[in-house]
């Protein structure tokens, strides 16, 4: 088997060595829509706040960046296996993740919130949501948060993508979801979100599970690219480009303090 893999490796190396010469940075986003941060239209083009920010950073640092969609639950392995070079998929900077990848400085921060069908009358507390079925996206900080504070009293149902959680929330198959507040507000602004659901409450911030903000992820060996992104983030913050992009999607400050 090893021999075969080596042979295939040699074959593949010959096949794509031409491609490898061009230095493009592959920026990995989660393969499903995550409004308003990243959405896909039918022409195959990604857009959204995070995509705009990415292009601004890359332009500032003279990097040739392309968007590459990867399954969210495999996005860290994809980074470490070299299929992408950067993760920009609203990933929170947490201690646990920092063991396997490096992060840039944060570029926004969002608390977790609870969204539920319009008929919901409870409060967004562990007692208020006792016995309910709560949908969360697998491998997110919100899943860790929900496990820590709601895991004992409510049933957690895990999904591969937040888009699927929203879908099942609209279909009434779960009683609530716990997710990033800003992304949930993006969902509530869509027609299906508007007609089904409402924001029940914003949850108190927890540093242990939610981390210290959202940053871009890099391979541990890639400190040069990380430094370029940090410089890029600082530059677009200073030049006002950051605020200009934010105004297109939000009417408040999402950077935090």
């Amino acid at each position: 088997m090893k021999k075969q893999i080596l042979a295939l490796a040699a074959m593949a190396a010959v096949a794509v060595s031409g491609v490898a010469q061009a230095k493009t940075i592959k920026v990995g986003v989660a393969a499903e829509p995550y409004p308003p941060f990243s959405t896909l239209d039918s022409s195959g083009k990604w857009s959204g706040w995070e995509i705009d920010l990415m292009h601004a950073i890359c332009k500032d640092q003279h990097l040739d960046c392309v968007v590459k969609a990867v399954a969210w639950d495999g996005i860290i392995p994809a980074l470490n296996a070299g299929q992408i070079d950067v993760i920009m998929a609203s990933m929170s900077i947490t201690k646990k993740r920092e063991k396997v990848i490096d992060f840039s400085n944060k570029y926004y921060v969002t608390p977790a919130a609870v969204v539920a069908p319009k008929s919901a009358t409870y409060k967004a507390t562990p007692e208020g949501m006792k016995g309910l079925t709560i949908g969360v996206e697998i491998g997110t900080t919100n899943q860790a948060y929900a496990k820590k504070f709601f895991g004992k009293t409510a049933t957690l149902k895990t999904y591969q993508t937040q888009d699927q959680v929203d879908q099942d929330l609209a279909a009434g198959r779960i009683d609530a979801t716990i997710a990033d507040q800003f992304a949930l507000e993006g969902f509530l602004a869509t027609p299906s979100g508007k007609s089904c659901c409402k924001l029940v409450g914003v949850l108190p911030y927890d540093n242990e599970t939610l981390g210290t903000g959202i940053g871009a992820g890099f391979r541990k060996s890639d400190s040069k690219l990380r430094a370029e992104f940090n410089k890029g983030i600082a530059d677009v913050r200073k030049s006002g480009e950051y605020d200009k992009i934010t105004k297109k999607y939000f009417n408040f400050n999402i950077y935090g303090n």
Partner: peptide, 16 residues
């Protein structure tokens, strides 16, 4: 991963 490890082992850069 194996392909890239073989390549870096032989002194080439990573490929996509």
């Amino acid at each position: 991963e194996v392909v890239n490890q073989v390549l870096t082992g032989m002194g080439y850069g990573r490929i996509d």
